[in-house]
């Protein structure tokens, strides 16, 4: 009896050992696969042209050189122009998003608000059905938003999903707080701006982040509605350089042979320059992203 238990234990611990080995192997493979593309891009961006050409850069920079960075960052100002535009769209756009989301969500969270059910339906319905690309395109070009900075801000003013998340946060505020404020003579605008908004800051932080990331990554709006390259955000420039292999960020004085080598490096440098800010702030913000998923899950 005792013996057989011991035997079971041995089998058990052997099998558990295999289990943990498997778990660690899988986790490490996932880790490596996720990170490797970034590591590789970074390595190529800092390597010497000859090493890149020979294809011997795999994991770390070979013959470290910052030639590529020099070209991308100092040769012409187009990347900085695009950077500036993206920062502008992200900052201004996110401020508009937050204000609009709050003033949409607060009334909808008040149980006394007449018409609440109808308005709730109105904003939920567009999550399921929308006019589609062409009618929206015709509308936006017809109301004069084509080639205007506002096109990056106004048509994406609110997302119904975020309004709903924000609405649930407002709904979670205890009624007594609101009631005591309104007995003290505060109207809804006061209650919202002085009390309610402070009580939902954790949710607002998450929503701000979502809006900011979507502005930073927004490419399609600019593709459709902005042809003036002075207004182009970073993502449109990235598309030209990375995907359409445009040579606009390269130094034109170098010879053809050299150009071929450098062109690959310039593309990888561009990736680094464009994603580094996100990678730099990401570790500090990631807990909010996780929180965001959970907000959505509770709501659903």
């Amino acid at each position: 009896m005792i013996l057989s238990k011991k035997k079971n234990d041995i089998i058990g611990s052997f099998s558990d050992g295999a289990f943990y080995a498997l778990v660690y192997v899988f986790a490490l493979v996932a880790f490596f696969i996720t990170l490797y593309p970034f590591v590789y891009v970074l390595a190529v961006s800092m390597s010497g042209g000859e090493a890149i050409n020979k294809g011997i850069v795999w994991l770390y920079p070979v013959d470290i050189s910052f030639e590529g960075y020099k070209q991308v960052m100092f040769n012409n100002k187009s990347i900085w122009l695009a950077y500036g535009n993206t920062i502008y769209y992200t900052v201004v756009g996110t401020v508009f998003n937050i204000v609009a989301t709050v003033i949409a969500a607060y009334p909808l969270s008040r149980t006394t608000f007449s018409g609440r059910r109808f308005f709730n339906f109105l904003i939920a319905f567009v999550m399921y059905f929308h006019g589609g690309l062409i009618p929206t395109y015709l509308l936006i070009t017809n109301i004069g938003l084509y080639n205007s900075r506002w096109v990056m801000i106004i048509p994406g003013l609110v997302t119904s999903y975020n309004v709903m998340v924000c609405r649930s946060a407002f709904s979670a505020i205890p009624d007594e707080i609101m009631e005591s404020a309104s007995i003290d003579g505060a109207n809804d605008i006061h209650i919202l701006s002085r009390i309610a908004i402070k009580l939902i800051t954790p949710t607002l932080a998450v929503i701000t982040l979502y809006y900011a990331v979507s502005h930073w990554n927004n490419f399609f709006t600019a593709l459709l509605y902005i042809s003036d390259s002075n207004l182009h955000p970073l993502q449109v420039l990235l598309r030209r350089v990375l995907i359409q292999a445009s040579s606009e960020l390269m130094d034109n004085s170098t010879g053809l042979e050299e150009k071929l080598i450098v062109s690959l490096q310039v593309r990888y440098v561009t990736i680094v320059v464009a994603t580094l800010p996100i990678l730099a702030i990401y570790p500090f913000l990631q807990k909010y992203f996780v929180k965001g998923v959970m907000l959505g899950a509770v709501k659903g």
Binding site: T34, L35, P37, F38, V41, V213, W216, N217, F219, Q235, L238, R239, V241, L242, I243, R267, I271, A274, T275, I278, L279, Y282, Q286, F289, V290
Partner: peptide, 14 residues
């Protein structure tokens, strides 16, 4: 989680 926050343009570029 990181790749989720990289823009589609950069992902396709890579």
């Amino acid at each position: 989680y990181l790749p989720h926050f990289i823009s589609t343009v950069v992902v396709v570029g890579m």
